[in-house]
Design a protein around this nucleic acid. Structure first.
Lengths: 143, 143
DNA sequence: ACCGAGTTAATAATCGTTCTAAATTAGAAA
DNA sequence: TTTCTAATTTAGAACGATTATTAACTCGGT
């Protein structure tokens, strides 16, 4: 299925009108794996579509979040970053260059689920387990 | 060892002057397991020590963070929350009431370390693995 | 093509955090 | 104990990110 059609379908499934702004914001987000900020999404879009407003980007991202179309990535900076992938996955935080990457590993998910099934925490019904992997970006040695 | 003495020692070890403000901020933080915000630390202290400034709280927390005395807890809200426990541990995020609790489990740490030793991620030298446990607070059934 | 609810744009307001510069203070040295 | 100085604190301004407001616009159903 074509990308644009997919995006339209996502909006329709959520019961959201397919406005130009929503289409372009969601497309920007799905094309970018860098977990952009609202501001950087705005700037990227502004080039091809100068009439877009920053508040529309904020509003739209919040609407998307409420509908589970995007999620917020937890960083230790003040600004919020977005991710259009909402299924179970983890995040790699590269020290220094401020990059964030997705990390998928169903085996890890299973391992964690199993662990918390055995080691029940009282008073909580877990619905998400997410690992934050933090470290330094290194170059692989050629030898 | 007495609590106040311990706090003085922590500051001395970091090479930081033991000012009243630092002592009281660090004490507030170590007494509170609720991962407070800068603002809420400020308010708590203000009662007994009305001359404290909000910027001092911000400054001091940043100094502490740089010296590894406190760490920032990643939430998906805009405001930053602090934790005076800096050794390896995980966080439980309770949905709804906005509470955050520490979760210790050396077995989990070992499990994760072992996992990532087997499943190496290219280009990264991992120095922290932290699990975010998210879920609903529930009441245990009495039967 | 028209209508109405939903959406957007522009901008003001707010919130949390950082910066600035002058006043104060801890702690080393005399 | 007093003096000195660099470190620290204070108050408030400035800043940057986000949210709220409201009038104008538009999508999609008729």
């Amino acid at each position: 299925m074509n990308k644009k059609v997919k995006i339209r379908k996502t909006l329709a499934n959520a019961g959201l009108k397919a406005t130009v702004q929503r289409l372009v914001i969601l497309e920007t987000l799905t094309d970018n794996f860098s977990h952009p900020t609202a501001e950087s999404i705005f700037k990227k879009i502004k080039k091809d579509y100068p009439s877009i407003s920053l508040s529309t980007v904020y509003n739209t991202l919040e609407v998307f979040r409420k509908h589970g179309i995007v999620r917020i990535v937890n960083t230790d900076s003040v600004t919020v970053r977005y991710d259009s992938v909402t299924d179970t996955h983890h995040h790699i935080f590269f020290e220094g260059n401020n990059k964030i990457e997705d990390y998928y590993n169903p085996e890890l998910d299973k391992l964690l689920q199993k662990f918390f099934l055995k080691n029940k925490i009282p008073n909580i019904e877990i619905n998400e387990l997410q690992v934050q992997i933090k470290g330094k970006h290194i170059r692989i040695q050629a030898n």
